[in-house]
Design a protein around this nucleic acid. Structure first.
Lengths: 146, 146
DNA sequence: TATTGTTATACTCTATAACTATA
DNA sequence: TATAGTTATAGAGTATAACAATA
C-alpha cells in the first residue's frame, strides 16, 4: 500500500457535493411548479406540517414579516388551499390549516418532483441506488431530519 | 434469504432523497449570502462560467427576459462585479465578463457554503464520506455535469 | 427588414410604520 | 399597556410593450 487511506474528511468532497446538490435542487424546484408562487408553496408546506399554526409562528418559521404572511395566507385562502380560524381562547390569534384541496396540491407538487427524480434513478443499477439510499440517510442526518 | 434484493429502483428512495436535497440546498443558500440578491449571485455565477457571454445568452440561460437581465447586469456593474464590452464584429452585441472583484465575491460565497458542508462532513467516518463521494458522482451524472 | 439590447410602464412580493381588536 | 394580526405605503425584482442602434 502506497499511502494510508486518504484522510480527507470532505475537504475535496464538499465543493463537489455542494454544486451537485444546488443544481439538482434548482432542477427539482422547476419541476414542482404548480400555479402558485414559491413563497406560497413553501408556506403551504409549513402549514400542512405544523397544522393549525398561528400566523405569527408561520411568519417566524418561514422567515418573513407578519404583514407578508398575512398576504400569503390571503392568497392561499382565496385559492381555497388553506383555512383561517380564530382561536377560541384568545381571539386575537388566527390559526391556519390546510384544506383537502391544499393537501392535494402539495401531493401533486411532490409527486412531480419525485417522479422526475425516480425517472433518473431508474437509469442506475441496484448497487448505485443503494449508494444513494445510504447517502440520503447521511444527508437526512445532516439537515436534522428524524 | 427471505426475499430477493428489493428490486426498487428508487420508488421509495426518490421522495426521501428529494426532501433531503431540497432542505440541504435551502440551508446552503442561506449560508452563502453575500450582500447581493439571489438573482444577481446566480447571474454572476453564470457570467463567470460562460465568460464574455452576450446579454441575450445570459438571459436565456438564467431563464429571465432580456430587460430583466439588463437590470441585473446594471446593478452588478454598478457594484464593480462585472464588466460590459461591445462586441467588435457586431456592435449590437454586448458581452459581459466578471471582474477580479466579482470572482473574489464568488469565491467567498462558495467558500462559506463549502465550509458549512465540510464542517458537517467532518462528523462522518471515512466509510460514510466515501458513500457521499460516490453519491456526488451519481448526482453529477444526474444533473448533466461533465 | 430583422436582431440586440435598452427604456417605459405595470404587477408581484416583500418590508417598515401605523392602526385595530383583544387581552 | 402589551400583543396578534391587518392595512397603508414604499422598495426591490420581474414582465410585456415600445423604442434605438446596428446589421
Amino acid at each position: 500500500m502506497e499511502t494510508l487511506e486518504r484522510t480527507s474528511t470532505g475537504a475535496e468532497l464538499a465543493p463537489r457535493l455542494r454544486l451537485a446538490i444546488m443544481r439538482l435542487a434548482r432542477i427539482l424546484r422547476q419541476h414542482g411548479q404548480e400555479g402558485i408562487s414559491a413563497s406560497q408553496l413553501s408556506a403551504l408546506v409549513t402549514i400542512e406540517r405544523l397544522d393549525s399554526v398561528t400566523l405569527g409562528e408561520l411568519a417566524s418559521v418561514e422567515k418573513v414579516q407578519p404583514p407578508t404572511m398575512t398576504r400569503i395566507v390571503d392568497s392561499l385562502e382565496d385559492q381555497g388551499l388553506v383555512r383561517r380560524e380564530t382561536d377560541e381562547q384568545d381571539r386575537r390569534i388566527c390559526r391556519v390549516s390546510a384544506t383537502t384541496q391544499g393537501r392535494k396540491m402539495l401531493d401533486r407538487s411532490r409527486r412531480r418532483k419525485t417522479a422526475y427524480l425516480a425517472a433518473h434513478l431508474r437509469e442506475l443499477n441496484a448497487e448505485e441506488v443503494d449508494v444513494l439510499a445510504r447517502a440520503a440517510e447521511l444527508l437526512e442526518r445532516m439537515v436534522g431530519q428524524p
